[in-house]
């Protein structure tokens, strides 16, 4: 009988197999080389694509952020000028950064709502499968379509939300949701939560269903109340799923371009401007690709920091594979 172990790159070797003959090192070495080459051949296409479409643009973007460049002019070294402008002169950058952080902070609300929904549809609720489908339905919709629908829902004069609020006597004057500086961002965030909640729910539901039932049975036998079972079993066991939702939430906040673009265009007066829409406006609206590159570097750094913090918040080992 032989045991099989796996080295980090996944190639297998047998332990306890018959010892190799004296000439074996040469043969073994050749085999190892051939295996390595084969692995490299398999990896090469994806690595090449990754390098070409991810690493190179990222590196070029970083270089561009230290230059004055447009598609029509030769590049000149700019030093930290673009960054200085961003931090000390560009009010819109600070507004966009604040809005992006607010957007991110709304993710936990969405995750909590999704968790509540996931717990509900994971229970013995009658018609749970139907509710699950209905809630998930919002996710595959195109963000542009979601934006248009919500824009009409929020309309000050003919919008359904104002119609209901006025009809029920909750308000007398209609609320200009997307025209108001105070309401615009929360309104966009609400539309975003509505769209993404179904996706979070599915992730959390999968997490809930993978929790071994015997843990709950044991807790029940020990007399643990429902709240203790939730806090001591469900939540810890859901940690990887919650981490995934948090990361998706962060990414979603950084890339909620289409929804903002369709609903408000970043307005009024940058009240709903996110870093991503600011980058787009600078690059394609004002043909300032160099400055847009500097903004992108800051956004990227922020994304890495937040993902790192999210990872730390769930114990620092999210995404790792448990070995048997």
């Amino acid at each position: 009988m032989s045991l099989e172990t796996r080295n980090p790159v996944g190639s297998a070797k047998r332990v306890g197999a018959v010892a190799a003959p004296a000439s074996a090192p040469g043969w073994y070495q050749r085999r190892r080389t051939r295996e390595a080459m084969l692995i490299a051949c398999f990896l090469l296409p994806s690595l090449a694509i990754f390098l070409l479409y991810r690493i190179l643009p990222l590196a070029w973007n970083a270089v561009l952020s230290f230059e004055f460049w447009s598609p029509l002019k030769a590049a000149r070294f700019a030093g930290l000028d673009n960054y200085a402008e961003m931090f000390f002169e560009d009010d819109v950058f600070w507004q966009a950064l604040t809005n992006t952080l607010i957007f991110i902070m709304a993710s936990p609300v969405a995750i909590l709502l999704a968790l509540a929904v996931a717990l509900a549809v994971n229970s013995d609720l009658k018609g749970a499968a139907i509710y699950r489908t209905i809630i998930f339905l919002s996710y595959p919709l195109m963000s542009v379509a979601v934006g248009i629908v919500w824009r009409w829902l929020y309309d000050e004069r003919g919008g359904f939300i104002n119609f209901v609020l006025r009809g029920t006597g909750l308000i007398t004057d209609p609320i200009p949701f997307l025209q108001s500086f105070g309401w615009a961002l929360p309104s966009v965030i609400l539309a975003d939560i509505w769209q993404v909640i179904g996706f979070y729910m599915i992730i959390l539901l999968t997490g809930l269903q993978s929790i071994p039932q015997h843990l709950y049975e044991a807790a029940r036998i020990d007399g643990a109340p429902a709240s203790a079972r939730f806090l001591r079993i469900t939540l810890p066991m859901l940690r990887p799923s919650l981490f995934l939702c948090a990361v998706i939430g962060i990414l979603n906040s950084f890339t909620a371009f289409d929804l903002v673009y369709v609903m408000t265009g970043g307005g009024p007066a940058h009240a709903t401007e996110l870093l991503v829409t600011h980058i787009y406006n600078m690059g394609f609206g004002e043909t300032r690709f160099d400055y847009a590159a500097a903004l992108t570097v800051v956004q990227f750094a922020l994304l890495v920091i937040l993902t790192f913090l999210a990872n730390r918040a769930v114990g620092g080992n999210a995404g790792s594979v448990e070995s048997a």
Binding site: V92, Q179, S180, F181, G267, P268, A269, H270, N281, G285, E286, T287, R288
Partner: peptide
């Protein structure tokens, strides 16, 4: 050659005025 930049600056402040900020 930077028409959009100038317009965007003025427009944001105009929105601030027209919408009462």
């Amino acid at each position: 050659s930077d028409d959009s930049s100038v317009k965007n600056i003025v427009w944001a402040e105009m929105q601030n005025i027209f919408l009462g900020r």
